[in-house]
Design a protein around this nucleic acid. Sequence first.
RNA 1: GUCCUCAUAGCUCAACUGGAUAGAGCGUCAGCUUGCGGAGCUGAAGGUUGGAGGUUCAAGUCCUCCUGGGGACACCA
Length: 582
Amino acid sequence: MNIENTIKDQINQVIEKEYCLKDFKFQIEEPKDKIYGDYTTNAAMLLAKKRKSDPIKIGNEIIDKLNKAKKKKSVQLSEYFSKIRVVKPGFINFYLADDFLKNELAHILDNGDEYGRTNEGNGRTIVVDYSAPNIAKKMHVGHLRSTIIGSSICRVYSFLGYRVIGDNHLGDWGTQFGKIIFMYKRKYGEVIKDDMTVGEMESMYVDFHKKEKIDLGFAGKARAELKKLQNKDKFNYRLWQLFCKISISEFKKIYKVLDVDFDLWRGESFYNDMLQEVVEAALNGRIAKRSEGAVVIPLKKYGLPDFLIQKSDEAFLYSTTDLATIKYRHEKYNPIKNIYVVASQQELYFKQLFKTSELLGLSSNEEMIHVKFGLILGANGRKMSTREGEVADLWDIINEGISKAKKLMTKKNPDLTGDGLESAAAIVAIGAIKYNDLSQNRLTDVKFDWDKMLALESGSAPYLQYTYVRIKSIFSRIGFEFDSLQKNIDLSLLGRSNEMILIRDLVRFPGIVKRVLSEHRLNLITIYLEELAKDFHNFYENSSVLRSEKNLAVARLGLLKAVARIMKNGLFLLGIDTPDRM
RNA sequence: GUCCUCAUAGCUCAACUGGAUAGAGCGUCAGCUUGCGGAGCUGAAGGUUGGAGGUUCAAGUCCUCCUGGGGACACCA
């Protein structure tokens, strides 16, 4: 059930019928201030402008028609709203009726964790390309952002009934392997060392760049090793496989701690055999042309720079792989959306890629979306450099967070020890780290701030988790099983303003989740959950459950159970877990 | 040089994409424990939304110009 859609439909019908306007565009919003009701629309003002009339008058006419229409309609607005008013500039404000709110609360309690889940996706496929670390390089904070945002987007699409394919498009092919293989052989010769670490691979890469400047022969030798790898030279190929195997197993450890899953692990190398075909098709279709020995897609007439898809030495590029990937995904999965969660630095590249894909007809009927995010800058406000060793290691961040959380917990809750402490500390720390990326969606570059990333105070994930913990604690104190709270609770006993405020919050959840997808703005969920948490904490400080009369206590337990469920669900969509104690 | 993007409280960020009195956290100051967990709650101070014009019932949001930060601009990924 979506209240916003219901209002919109009904107003649309009135406008279409009474004012003879089809597809009239207006908005249904939640007003900033609760005194303006639960929902508001600017329809009257927009209509008044068009007809050069008084918005207040038009507003009253619309309300009048809505009230008259209700007799014939199966859905009656009066079931939802206690009043509908026109005010000042011409807003029409809708106030939800208490009975309706209580019915919704009962619905949440009956439906369990399904509240807000819909089937609007109807099983259609969405491909989400995210994380994508490079083999033989350590994952860093940049990958963290893509990983966290991408996995949350996947969860929201699934929740709304889409078939989601999360693909980890690993950087497992390219020139860096020539360099690393060359350095490896120089150090170990032709032996396979199983106990390599990603850190060692990365330092060989860094070392190469240092020495390349002194010994000019390095570049050529690295290129020769790369050529051998491309020609599937036995040893080089085995070495490459080893690098991949070790890197992937290290990445998987991080993903496990972060609670991130992928449906596919198709690295760039997977598409190697399809690249020639893509270039030939582009040339044959006269979409591409040769220029200075290379193959380019002319895009000037679309206001974009030309796009290179094959080098003059016949080698392929990242762009070629991406085109092959789009083609492959289209043929294999036929998605309605192809979503790339990648830093905004690559915006121009993706514009070129998407246009080229369109010209080649690789992605017909597919929406290509670049979900971009700002750069992560060092504390000094400048881009962090791997070479300077400024990039914070992911494990350092995670471990630092866990130890910080553990320290705080032993202080706040000394009863919590052993495994309980360990697992709760991990949940809280990972939650805080994820929240740092999810609570801001703006494209502003983000300064990497150790304290902020691991913040455990209000305005962070632990603040939200704490509401869940507090509610669970009430249940255990009062001796009720959270899951088996009786169903026939007398919700009519609820009605005080702080109780109704909470129910109003709960009812908003489905609309919030739905809105997330239109712009892929996950911070809408964080904003919502913070409001819910704040209203809960306010209720908690002012109204006791334990000390209230028995039936009222049970009714309030019902309310709090619903709050806990929505909180858990909301956090789940963000990829954040909820501990029972912390 | 061209294009993209950002600029909001001392700091870090919001503001439902044109709506009503621009909001949170941190920090500062003042309160709240004979109450279900104080990782909490209540209140105060803090703003010419970088600057100047424009568009309209309405502009932090849209258009133009300026200033400043960041990014991208074919043989890297």
